[in-house]
Design a protein around this nucleic acid. Structure first.
Lengths: 210, 210, 210, 210
DNA sequence: ACGTAACCGAGACGGTACGTCTGGTCTTCAA
DNA sequence: TTGAAGACCAGACGTACCGTCTCGGTTACGT
């Protein structure tokens, strides 16, 4: 019969101390070494206070990333699709490229056997970015940079997929030219079978990249 | 100054018991609940014996998968590229689709913060499959199903990437039609910009898929 | 510099609720399981309110016993000393014989490492009873049932001592015949060394018992 | 399904370290401040190791006292009963008179709400001393210092009772003259109603005390 | 009569210690 | 002289209460 704590009376200073301590410890020792005990000690906070507001250390880190992300709800829009996709992918590459032991990677690892955390991760971090991504593609359809019937879900898979693939298998994130090549391939895949002048349009947008 | 154990005197029956126990426990409780202690108890083996031959529980599971995989070194070759890619991807989908709590997923999760395990995983399980995959693409180039300058690394990223993407974010494995669509898109991406009869060839291979 | 609360404004209903809840919890789970938190919850009272008026859970229980005790200030006096001593001892036996987990015993246990509580316990529960006990013996001296120079402190020790001895070591409270025997021995101890007809006097008083 | 640990393989050095640490902490901070955690830390031992062999901190302290006691199985026997009783009682007074925060008192307090510990305490510490005490009285009966039908259980109650009474109520241990007086009274109580030369014998023993 | 002091409920907070768990190492003993 | 059995150190886990502390709301006194 554990009743929910009263969020109104929550101590913001404790919350801040916890997130700060988590960030520090995470960058010092890596997500793997991160411990609720250590967070509590570093933050000068009772373990109970952490457990009161978060179900697991993963949830704390998720909130940390959530804050840090400060999601740009509006997608970048320079007018050139490839450039904007590059920007979006580069942000994710940043999250998945550990200087040491990335919190994002740790979070994904933990979510792999914690369905609750997985759901939170998806809802709070991933879905907003997916929406942003699709919004940009939708604009591209409006401007004719992409055909109106292009499958945006496939685009999502093809563009983000490689990053997770490489993360999961420790294959190294794509460098700048890999990235350009990937984007070019995917844009080509999304264009309709060659019939008329559509390809020219695509080529124009690619030209804009260089 | 820990001396290496003498592999020649290793007890094969212990090894078998350990792997069997690991398999059982893994399918009963899932990788997450798996414990060296539990393996030792179930296998009737000392913990020391496990630590003597494997550095971590991940390594045990890796060996388990390695055996079970008995990789078909030769790629499938029905003559139709899309069909064969489908077969290759479907195998991976099987590994990444947990009936319960897949050992493969657990292994990937653990490898995310264990570089040694990651290396072993890559060398023993992943690279052989990548080689097989590329071998099939190379044959496709020889038969003209793919252009000779197609970037096989990009193909790898685009085809396997989506699976890991979906695994990592719990988005659900692609179903049959998703898969067809992905393969079709990727094959289109790999063909050169429309100039000659190549597109026809591609369309043929797509027809073969349906 | 915590100022003393104003007793005049104290809420009697809270006090009652706290004592009632304490009594219930004590009889349900025993003194050992009793916690301030549980009392507060059961009584529908803030923990602060308890701490405002009592220094410890022991103090609450002490007040509970104090109320329940409703000390008979006047000692029993049937005219027969042994009978009256029996009555006095029987009351204490009742307190120290747990049907379950006696609050009195719990209180004594806690007082063993809480000097403040020990003092309160002595002053509020014990001393009045000792005074009553001695008052009865004094009357016995006046009526000649005890010699005028009988050592009343020794009598106290000899009569109550066995009860605490048995409580402390879980030896079981004396039954009816033990009790008679104890009283008889102690009365004999208090009589002066045999010189004249004194023994007869004692025997008379014993006869009065039947 | 917790299997019992194998006592044969128990580490004597750990056991010693634990008991030593317990003794130190007990005399430094008192029984009340004693903590399993602190014992483990001080002893350089895992908490698990303590819990493996003892059910509670009380049990550890009990074993400590048990060792320290190294009970003299043979009762003192100077030939004078009162003198020997004095010696026996003085030993107990020593245990129950805290220089600070006596382990024995803490143990008794804990046993008051821990029946298992109470049983152990009785069997390992108390009963042997009771047996020793009664053995001395039995010899006194043989030498005629006590009547053959003296009730030894009553003697036990009357002699040890006062000590526990005073301990429980923080009344202060009896000083030397109190003690003499108590013993004298009890010996008188154990002698039969005056009829023959017995009193002389008693008086002799009393003389021996002074 | 009305401001204000202080009690009240509620419960979040920093802490301490609990007893359990798992990981990896070290010791013992039987074959 | 190996290897099964398992005790050991280490320390994080999540829980239970502790006693302190705000926070509004509500008496009830004192001016």
């Amino acid at each position: 019969m554990s009743r929910a704590p009263n969020a109104a009376r929550r101590s913001e200073s404790s919350r801040r101390a916890i997130l700060t301590a988590t960030a520090e410890l995470c960058s010092e020792d890596g997500y793997g070494r991160l411990t609720i005990e250590a967070i509590a000690t570093r933050a000068g906070v009772s373990k109970k206070t952490i457990y009161r507001w978060w179900p697991s250390k993963g949830a704390v880190v998720l909130e940390l990333l959530d804050e840090a992300a400060s999601v740009a709800v509006d997608p970048p829009d320079t007018g050139d699709l490839a450039t904007d996709l590059r920007a979006l992918l580069t942000e994710v590459i940043g999250l998945l490229t550990p200087p040491h032991n990335s919190p994002a990677i740790g979070l994904i690892a933990e979510a792999l056997h914690d369905p609750d955390l997985a759901r939170d991760l998806r809802e709070r971090l991933i879905q907003p970015r997916i929406a942003t991504f699709k919004e940009r593609l939708r604009r591209a359809q409006e401007t004719g940079q992409l055909p109106p019937d292009a499958d945006l879900d496939v685009a999502l898979d093809l563009l983000y997929g490689p990053l997770y693939h490489r993360m999961a298998l420790h294959l190294g994130m794509p460098d700048s030219s890999h990235l350009d090549s990937l984007i070019a391939h995917v844009l080509r895949a999304l264009t309709p079978p060659p019939s008329a002048g559509v390809p020219e349009q695509r080529r124009e947008s690619q030209t804009g990249v260089s």
